[in-house]
Every structure is written in structure tokens, then in C-alpha cells.
Write a protein that binds this DNA or RNA. Sequence first.
DNA 1: TTTTATATCTTAAACGTTTGCGATACTATT
DNA 2: AATAGTATCGCAAACGTTTAAGATATAAAA
Lengths: 397, 397
Amino acid sequence: MPRVKCPKCGKVETILKSGFVRGLQRYYCKECIYHFTLIKKGRYRNSAFDKKRQTTIIDIAKAVGVSASTVSRALKDHEDIGIRTKALVKQAAVELDYQPNLLAQSFNRRETHVIGVVVPDIENPFFASVLSGIQHTASASGYKVMIYQSNESHKTEAANIQTIMNNWIDGLLICHSKETQTFEHLKLQMKKGIPIIHFDRICEETKTSKVLLDNVIGSEKIVTHLLNEGCRRIAVIAGPQHLYITRKRLEGYKQALKKANIELDEKWISYTDFTKPAIHSAIDNWLMEKTRPEAIFCISDNSAILTMMYLKHLNIKIPEDICVAGFGNDYTGTIIEPALTTYNPRPFKVGETAAKLFFEQVIGGDNFHIKTITIEGELIIRSSSLKRSYGRSDGKE
Amino acid sequence: MPRVKCPKCGKVETILKSGFVRGLQRYYCKECIYHFTLIKKGRYRNSAFDKKRQTTIIDIAKAVGVSASTVSRALKDHEDIGIRTKALVKQAAVELDYQPNLLAQSFNRRETHVIGVVVPDIENPFFASVLSGIQHTASASGYKVMIYQSNESHKTEAANIQTIMNNWIDGLLICHSKETQTFEHLKLQMKKGIPIIHFDRICEETKTSKVLLDNVIGSEKIVTHLLNEGCRRIAVIAGPQHLYITRKRLEGYKQALKKANIELDEKWISYTDFTKPAIHSAIDNWLMEKTRPEAIFCISDNSAILTMMYLKHLNIKIPEDICVAGFGNDYTGTIIEPALTTYNPRPFKVGETAAKLFFEQVIGGDNFHIKTITIEGELIIRSSSLKRSYGRSDGKE
DNA sequence: TTTTATATCTTAAACGTTTGCGATACTATT
DNA sequence: AATAGTATCGCAAACGTTTAAGATATAAAA
């Protein structure tokens, strides 16, 4: 029999073995009816937790000789606290290098002051700019921004939302992936009452605030400009057919034609996946027509760049032979020659506005009614479309 | 005297008024020696907290008829829990739509699984790509990413770090702003024991892991390439003199010259702030020399683009008259004509590596020794520098 | 002197989860 | 029958902060 003393009565004779728990020999004192093991781990005495321990309000409270609640109130200048106490507390806070545990605060208040953002791709300049706008606005109000990219995958998007929504964020700003066509993953989360704001590629089925690009008007402006330059046969490099921006920008295209009393010819519309081969083959097809297109309107700047490079490769002159226009105002459009006519959707402002809508919803609470805001963009005319006035100035930089 | 009953003894006669607290009439029962007010607010009964309440493990515990700790363990398949109980708990969790409160978990564990990232500017493609690499790697390990941009301001950077470090993040990945020249704000935080990883613009004074671009070797490769093309007088558009990348890339420039036995001429080095006017004036000055430079090496792609556009504007042929090379492999370099010779620092990999270093440090704990990893980049030769072999293929796309 | 008012402080519960360790009900062994 | 072993569970504390509401001291009023 081992010489083990009972921690309660101190006796040795009454101790019996009693199996094992978690690999440790267990003992049992007959007299005290008390089970115990010898080695104690002590959760908060050994581990890595120790190092992470910082000054808390309790430390301050002890130092000053008041209660923790007084410290809490003093630090936020609550009226109930005497001016002398406040001073003492604040001084002690500085001396002890007190830093509030924001995690504890958030936990207590059930508010993290974090905005979650899900974008398809951070490296896309448009989204980078939106992100910047969000970050800027959030920061100004003391909010943090957590980002996720879906990589244009519906699955990743759904998984991201699932994780992030579990108490981490106060609101979600989202632009759906190209793949996303069902929105059950979002609707599930909406029950939690966390504000959701859509931007750019929105979801039409949910009662959420939305920030839109003026896709229709913008496209209409571009196409109208091309018409004004004397182009009649205007081809379109569109995206996948189900994609929101494809539908909307095509709508603008059609409107412009209608207003100009030009009949729509479906052969001038090519649905692509924005890849180089798809675009090349679309152009090849058009060039085989007996009458070539006079202009190509590309739904995105990136495809416009690809289009221009291919046309140049084919020794087709821009804009003399074919005008080209894009949509998006990517930086590359100013570099390529001739400079690309495009439409600036003001992505930074899109981000700003989305963040502002979030704040409105937070402040408004139940009184807030969802809004849809369309950001007015800006037609940017550059050489790539200036057929009629070829040779005149490049427009503004 | 008001007809107020004592909540304790129920008597009315013994009640006295006793001033006001928080705007409410206060009463006092002589017999019970008990102060009280009439209206009770009840913190967790009325407010917005209610709506945010979700299913907790306690709810599950009640439903199944076990304790909360059992639920906690069952959900993570702890061996102590019986297989039947586990099944019951998991089933209840699904039925009640239980979502763990990640905030509570983090608070308890003192671990958020969030990586903080501070970059100067999200819209800069280099940083966007780094960010993407970080996000990718973090996501794969179940970590979230919180971003901050300093907007190249030291003050903003310091403020960001201050906020974010208070328990919000498990680690900090940072690229300093151009302005940042003192690092006290960082050193202060290092005491907390949170891993800090530097990338790109590092801090040489701190004992932190770092991820570097191969600035020196990369620049040397570029300049050597220019030398091989027959350029002898190679001018440099540098950045501000104190900037880390300026110093390093200049070092590579000098090394290349030295190896080629060409004497360094300081007049070919121009320190700019990367703005258009500064670059233009640097070029103007060089062109006034009796012997013009044969090549211009720009410390960054963006300044290379500006340089090329200005040279073209001056009707100087690239590369016949002057070769141009950049550093960074921005997308625009593939668009401009002639395409820009540059160096790909592999920003995505930089981000990936920074994140990996963080994980190594977390896993290694005290055993981890800080590392400095240099990411090997890739020389990308395009037309803008192909003087000798002008007219030959464009190199790989 | 008794009652009322004011200013300032304390107490304790609550947030949701984790976890050390004791408790209980068995079965197996001696 | 006494003791030892095993499987499975519960208790309670701990994390750091906030906050409702009671407590106390002191001054003012009746």
C-alpha cells in the first residue's frame, strides 16, 4: 500500500487505490469519501496562458484600492465616479500599462466592431479598390475589416460565410462569386439579424441593402458614344450568360441601340468566359462576316485589353478600322495604345457606400429600411473609340 | 407618503423616501434596512441583446439532459464521453441549429485565429497579391485575416497596430509605410509575445522573422541584362533615399556595375518620390548631358511606365535610343508598348511565406528561432530592353 | 431630530466556453 | 466481500469586462 495521505483528513491508513483517471493513479479515502489523484495540473498556472496575461482592470482596482466596476466606469468617464478617483485610476492605468482586452469587451457586448467582407478576388483591381473604400470608411468609425476571398467558388464562399458569421462580425458586405446562383447559404444567416449589404454582383432574392454600379446607364453611355462616333455595327464581348453584369450591361447596350433606332442583331453578341481563347474566337467569327463590326464593346476592361491586343496582332487599326471600349477603368486602360475608352464605376465609392449603408443599418436598427443605391459612374473617353475625330486630343488623362 | 410596499417584508408603513438614483425615486425600508427603486431594467431581458441570442451549449445540455461540459466535450469527440451521449448531443446540436460562439471560444482560449496584416496600400497590385497569398495560406489553416492599410502614414500605422494588437490577433504581418523610420510602436508591442513577421519593407532593428524580396540580386540581374544588351550608361530612377527598397536595389545596381568593371557615376542616380514631376525632371536632367544614358533602370514598374510614357512623348525610341527596365512585374508592363522588362518578385509567394513563418512560430513556440527568408524572383525580359537583339521575339508572354 | 437628497462606491451576475478534477456506477479482480 | 479498475459524467472555476441596482457617507431640508 502506498504512503499516500488524504488531502482532507491527512490519514494514511484509510487510503485505497481506485483505478486510473487520465493516466493518473487515483486514490480514495474511506473516511472522507474523497477521491483524488496526486498530480495537479493547475490550468492557469503553468501553460502558455501565463505569458499572455496582461494588466486587467482588476489589477488597477487593487492598485488603487477600489472595485473593478469603479475602474471600468472611471476609464470611460462615467458620471458616477468622483473626479479624484478617476484621476487615480487613469494614472494607475498608465503606470501599469493597461490595455483593455477588446476580445472580452466584444464578448460582453456581443459586438465586435468588425465588418466582414467577402470578395471573389482581392487581386482584381476593382475589388482591391472597393476594399480600400470599405477599409477607409470602417476605420474612420473605429471598425475593423476582415476579408475573405471566395476565389469565384461558390463552395468557398458558403464556407467563408458560415465561419465568419458565428459571432465574429457585426455585418457582412458581400459580392458573390461568379459561380453563385443559389443563395440559401445567405438566407440561412439572415435569421441571425446581422446586417448584410450586397455590392456589385448582388442577390436579387434577399431583402438586403445593395450598392450597384450603374451598369445599364454606363453601358448605354458607352454605346451611345460609339454610335455618335459613327459606328453602326457594334459587337459585344459579354461574359457568361447568367452573370449579373452580363445581363445588365447588355441591357444598356440594347437600350442605346433602341434609342438610336438600330435593330438588334444577336450575331454581334458573344457570350464568353472572359478568357483569351474565347475572346479570340469571338473576334475571329465576327471578322468572317461580310461586313465587319465597326466597334467592339467589351463588358470588362480586361477583355477590352485582350481584344485590342488581338486586333493589333491581326494588324487591324484601332480606332480607324474598329473602335474598342471597355468597362471598369482599370489602370491598364491608360497605358495601352491607343488609350482605352471605358467607364469608371468608382469602386472606391462603391466600398465607401456599402460601409456607410452598414452603419446606417446599425444605427437605424429596426427603423431602418433597406436601400438600393446606384453609384453614378463616369464615362471616360479616350483614343480607342475616337474614330470620327481621329487625331484630336486624347481627352483628359 | 406614497403607498410603496417593501419588496422584502411587504410592509408599507416602514417605507421612507431616500433621494434619487439615476433619475429614479429611491425608497428605504426602516425595518429591513433595504434601499430600493421601483423600476427594474433587467439587463438581459429587454434590449437588443435578446435578438442576438443563439443556441448555446447550455440549451443543448438542457435538451439532452446532461451538463454543459459534457456537451462541450461531446461536440469535440472527447474520449471521456460515451458514444450514445455523443450521438444525442450532436443530434440536438443540429436540431437546435447550434453554432458555437467563436468569440467566447477565442476569449476563453486567448486565441483568436486571426492574423492581422498591415499594408501601406491595398490598391497597390503588389500588396493585393501579397494579401491574397496571406489569405490563401491562412484560410487553409482555418485562420482569418484582418487587414489594415496605413496609407503610407506612420501615424496611421502606429494607431492601427495599437488597436489590433489588443487581443484581437494571434500574429501580425506587416510591411511598413514609406514614412516609417522609427519602430518604437512595434517594439512596444513585441513584449506581448505576439509573433510579428515583416515582409518587403522590413525593420532591421527588431528580432522578428522577415520575408524579403531578392532586391539586390534581382536588381543586379536586371542591370547585368542591360549591360549585356550593350548599355554602358545606365541611369536609375530611385525612390526616397531612406527607403529600404531604394537602398537595396541600388546596391544590386552597383554590384552589377562593379562586376562589369564600370565606374559608378552618381549623376546617373536620381532620388525621386516616384511622382510624375520628379521623374520627368530627372529624365530632363539626364537628357541635357552631352552623352545621354543608354538605359534607365526604374526601381519600380510604376515609375518605369511613367518613364516610358515620357520618353515616348519626347519621341525617344525604346529600346533603340534608350532601354527601360522596371521592377515588380505589374500587369501594366505586359500592356505597354514595348512590353516592359522587369523582375517578378513573386508577391503571392511573399504573402504565403510570411503566413507560413507565422505558423511555424506559433507551432514552434519558445523553440522557434526567427528566420529571414528571401524569395527568389524571376527576371522577365521583354522588348523594352532588347536593344542588341531588337526585332527578335518578345520573349515569353 | 428625523427625513430626504446627493455623490460616489461596491456587489454580484452575466456573457459562452473550456477544463481540471472529483463523483458515480459499474465490472473485474483478489 | 473487499478492493481495484474502467467508463462516463458533473461541478465549478476561470477568462476580462460591463452593468443593474443596492450601499454608504455626508449634506441638506423639514
